[in-house]
């Protein structure tokens, strides 16, 4: 069954298509600038506490010790081990000064408000714009795509219009809005280059922040390192190296001698 083409009013173009496109672009511009304003305030949390940094370094140092302890003599190894795990004075026997993630959050409300700001600058305009478009521009058919689609595309293309008998290839203003929202980023990248807000990146950053904060519990790492160091058995790798070196030299000498004999 071929349905006759719908004829769209010109007014729809003048009063829906053009204003909708313009308002979306303006909104995205606004968001870009708001984002820049918020981001321009430098993150102050960059200054890490010196003691905290030291603790992290201690952990990585003990990891090095665990992996390569075979290369240092026994006495040196024992001295280092006791530096880390001695009963009262060892680095890992003390309580970690670094705060856990929750304490950090409590101690630093700046972090919370920063996150809030990020979220607000991302989400609020989207909600506002959605409501705006829904209120003013819903229910219009804006155009037709030049290829046929299966009916399952209906909720995607004909948002805001509940007409099961309408051909799927017509799309509505609300779908057009969503398309522009995600499709215009490429255009904005041309204008703002690397400063464009990248939705996916923002999300990824938030995820990482969440994970990073969960993972950095120094006290736990201390305990784990301490346990491993306690049971670690030191085996000097240079045991018997003299014999190996002697055989290397012997091989070298006999080789040279053979070479000389050949020459003669």
């Amino acid at each position: 069954m071929v349905s006759p083409d719908l004829v769209l009013d010109r007014e729809v173009r003048d009063w829906v298509l053009v204003p909708l496109t313009l308002s979306i672009m303006l909104m995205m511009l606004l968001r870009q600038y708001v984002h820049q304003v918020f981001m321009s305030a430098p993150p102050k949390s960059a200054a890490v506490d010196e003691r905290e940094a030291k603790e992290k370094q201690a952990v990585s140092r003990s990891q090095v010790l665990r992996t390569f302890c075979g290369f240092i003599p026994d006495a040196a190894f024992r001295q280092r081990r006791s530096y880390f795990i001695a009963k009262d004075t060892g680095v890992f026997s003390k309580k970690s000064v670094a705060k856990s993630a929750q304490e950090q959050m409590m101690a630093n409300p700046d972090m919370l408000s920063n996150m809030m700001k990020q979220n607000v600058s991302g989400i609020v305009p989207q909600i506002a714009m959605g409501t705006f478009v829904n209120y003013f521009f819903s229910g219009f058919i804006l155009g037709k795509i030049p290829f046929s689609l299966s009916p399952s595309f209906r909720p995607m293309l004909q948002r805001g219009l509940d007409l099961p008998s309408l051909d799927v290839t017509y799309f509505t203003s609300l779908s057009y809005y969503i398309l522009l929202l995600f499709g215009l980023r490429g255009v904005f990248t041309l204008v703002f280059r690397e400063d464009t807000i990248d939705e996916t990146q923002v999300h990824r950053q938030q995820m990482q922040m969440g994970m990073g904060m969960g993972g950095q519990d120094n006290q736990k790492m201390f305990d784990a390192e301490k346990q491993v160091l306690e049971i670690l058995d030191h085996k000097w790798r240079l045991e018997g190296i003299e014999d190996l070196a002697a055989s290397t030299l012997r091989a070298r000498l006999s080789e040279k001698q053979a070479g000389r004999l050949k020459l003669e």
Binding site: L238, E242, L244, A245, T248, R252
Partner: peptide
Amino acid sequence: RLALSYYAAAVKLSKG
């Protein structure tokens, strides 16, 4: 003795 071991290691690594 320790020094001898480490010199020996260097000899071994550098193949003399």
